[in-house]
């Protein structure tokens, strides 16, 4: 069966500086992978390269989403094909109402996939249900996208978008940063509801803590732009003990 995400010897650069140095990763449907690594090792870069952020150039290798070459797709096509990135630093979009944004996103994706648009009442109903799971006040969703949200509220909002859009492949870039323990539990609960045999989840994190709540099937250690070690969930605990120092020196 085709893997959901297949990254082969991927090399990518930004501003002429090579960040990804021969990245290999395979995520099958139904799996949850954790990518851990020191700051600056290129974790966010990987997520941006996959989602098609302008400025990031693939110089070698390939990234395939359900067999389709991501580099041949525009940013919005990748999203419609099922790729979702929960941003490490979600952006504020002044003047664009959250509901307008959610409706535009859901319906743009549906349209590209040749599906029927979601009606406004259905959308509001879905959003309300998800907001309840994430313990979010609907009042917040009447504001412009992320405007004036705290760091934790932004992470909840990202999770809400993800749960609404029901992507095939979820990439969570340090979704745990800025969350207190209660918020972490709530958000993890939301993410766990997305676990399914048809969906892949990649959790990028610096700390082991998140993995207490979202249990990974596979844990990878990333250093200097590639994966240097892969293991089971016990690898995360080991990293908690030893830290990243040995990997940083190995990369240097």
């Amino acid at each position: 069966m085709t893997a959901l995400l297949e990254i082969r010897n991927l090399k990518a650069e930004i501003a002429g500086k090579q960040i990804l140095n021969g990245y290999d990763l395979t995520v099958k449907a139904g799996e949850v992978h954790a990518i851990m690594g020191p700051n600056g090792s290129g974790k966010s870069t990987l997520s941006y390269v996959l989602s098609g952020r302008p400025g990031y150039t693939i110089t070698e290798g390939q990234a395939l989403l359900a067999g389709a070459d991501l580099s041949q797709m525009s940013v919005d096509e990748r999203a419609a094909a099922g790729l979702f990135l929960a941003f490490q630093y979600p952006l504020e979009v002044p003047g664009v109402a959250t509901m307008t944004f959610l409706r535009a996103a859901v319906n743009a994706q549906r349209k590209k996939r040749g599906e029927e648009e979601m009606s406004s009442p259905d959308l509001i109903k879905s959003v309300k249900e998800i907001a309840k799971i994430l313990d979010m006040d609907m009042e917040m969703l009447r504001r412009p996208v992320n405007v004036g949200f705290s760091g934790g509220e932004k992470k909840r909002a990202e999770t809400l978008q993800m749960m609404l859009l029901q992507p095939k492949l979820c990439i969570l870039d340090e979704t745990d940063s800025g969350l207190d323990i209660d918020a972490l539990k709530v958000v993890s609960n939301g993410v766990n509801q997305l676990r399914s045999k048809d969906r892949g989840i990649v959790v990028i994190t610096h700390y082991q803590r998140l993995l207490d709540y979202i249990t990974p099937d596979v844990v990878h250690v990333q250093s200097a732009g590639r994966i240097v070690r892969t293991g089971g969930k016990e690898l995360a605990l080991e990293l908690e003990e030893t830290g990243y120092a040995s990997y940083q020196s190995e990369a240097a």
Binding site: G52, V75, A79, V93, A105
Partner: peptide, 19 residues
């Protein structure tokens, strides 16, 4: 950010311009 949610460029620009 808008395109990463599946919104096409014209629509993304329209939303930001309307704002």
């Amino acid at each position: 950010y808008l395109m990463a949610r599946g919104i096409g460029r014209i629509e993304a620009e329209a939303l930001l311009t309307e704002a």
